[in-house]
């Protein structure tokens, strides 16, 4: 009994120093190395809700009218195609304007309203786009259609919500929210869509040139090519990604990445997709882990019995 006590005491000392070591090089070091940013769970509390109830019919007129949203944005949901293809849009605006079919589902309503009213402000890129310096954001702000502007904006948001799909897959959410700037090569996505297979080398190269052209426009617009997000889920903590996507300036002051305006649900779908491409073994780990551990528990139990048998009479 005395011997066992001594072994346990020694184990206690070893365990103490090991855990202390772990604490020092992991939680403590990380708490000192990275600034702590508190998010607000995609509440966008700085944007005030107008409280107006939107009219879908009027919203449709405003969104699809002459010189309105559809002048630049496609809306597949109502069979309104984009005026230009991705490469040409990229060359004209720097980045391909998104199709608005899913905007009502992915983005926060307050954010959408602010975006229509003042894009550079909502996107938190006023350091890049300052009208006083002649640098206009490529998305023109909405100056009103002659009536109560807040009411008109509420109508437009209501329309976008009315056409938005009820269910979206993680991948759809990711593609609409992120992939016009970020490629995801493990998900086989380029900035202008999925990497398709071509029968002829010539077609494949032509497609690659289109991607490269688009990336060149994007580089000019963003300052550098935004990083591929294939495995970003393992390169950054989930907390970093959450606060960064909510407000990129909070983590990286001066970055040209805009606030995307995702709702909390939209964010969860995006992060789930990033997990699918960057950490695909997660479900398999959960499945296999317990069995391996049970194996070694049984192994240790049997080994203990063997040890007892072999040491019998030795003390």
């Amino acid at each position: 009994m005395n011997k066992i006590n001594k072994e346990l005491q020694i184990l206690g000392v070893v365990a103490f120093f090991t855990l202390f070591l772990y604490w020092g090089v992991e939680p403590f070091a990380h708490s000192q190395m990275h600034k702590h940013v508190e998010g607000e769970g995609f509440a966008y509390s700085e944007f005030k809700a107008s409280g107006k109830k939107g009219n879908v019919e009027n919203g449709k007129v405003l969104v699809t009218g002459a010189g309105a949203c559809t002048g630049c944005h496609g809306i597949k949901a109502i069979n309104s195609p984009a005026p230009m293809d991705a490469s040409m849009s990229g060359a004209s605006y720097g980045v391909n304007p998104p199709d608005l079919s899913t905007a009502g589902a992915l983005y926060n309503a307050k954010f959408l309203a602010e975006l229509i009213k003042n894009p550079a402000h909502a996107l938190k890129v006023e350091h890049k786009f300052d009208p006083a310096k002649g640098k206009m954001h490529p998305m023109a702000q909405f100056y009103g259609a002659g009536g109560d502007m807040d009411q008109e904006i509420a109508d437009m948001v209501a329309f976008l919500k009315s056409i938005a799909p009820k269910e979206m897959t993680n991948k759809e959410a990711y593609v609409d929210a992120c992939s016009r700037c970020h490629a995801n090569r493990y998900g086989k996505l380029t900035q202008i869509g999925e990497t398709t297979k071509f029968k002829y080398k010539k077609d494949e190269l032509a497609h690659q040139i289109k991607v490269l052209d688009y990336q060149d426009s994007l580089k000019k617009y963003m300052g550098k090519l935004p990083p591929d997000l294939s495995i970003i889920i393992r390169a950054r903590s989930e907390h970093f990604l959450e606060t960064f996507i909510e407000n990129p300036q909070s983590q990286l002051v001066g970055t040209s990445m805009p606030a995307v305006g995702l709702s909390h649900e939209g964010f969860e779908k995006v992060i789930a997709y990033l997990g699918e491409t960057g950490d695909p073994s997660k479900p398999a780990r959960g499945e296999l882990g317990p069995w391996v551990i049970i194996f070694f528990v049984v192994f240790s139990g049997l080994a203990f019995l063997w040890k007892k048998e072999k040491w019998r009479g030795h003390h």
Binding site: G289, S300, F304, K310, W311
Partner: peptide, 27 residues
């Protein structure tokens, strides 16, 4: 005799090892 004890310690060690492999590999 010595090996019997070694193998037991090894078994316990592998419980911890595989706990880290499956649930705590980030470190």
């Amino acid at each position: 005799v010595f090996l019997a004890k070694d193998i037991f310690v090894m078994g316990v060690y592998f419980i911890l090892f595989f706990y880290l492999v499956f649930y705590h590999f980030e470190f």
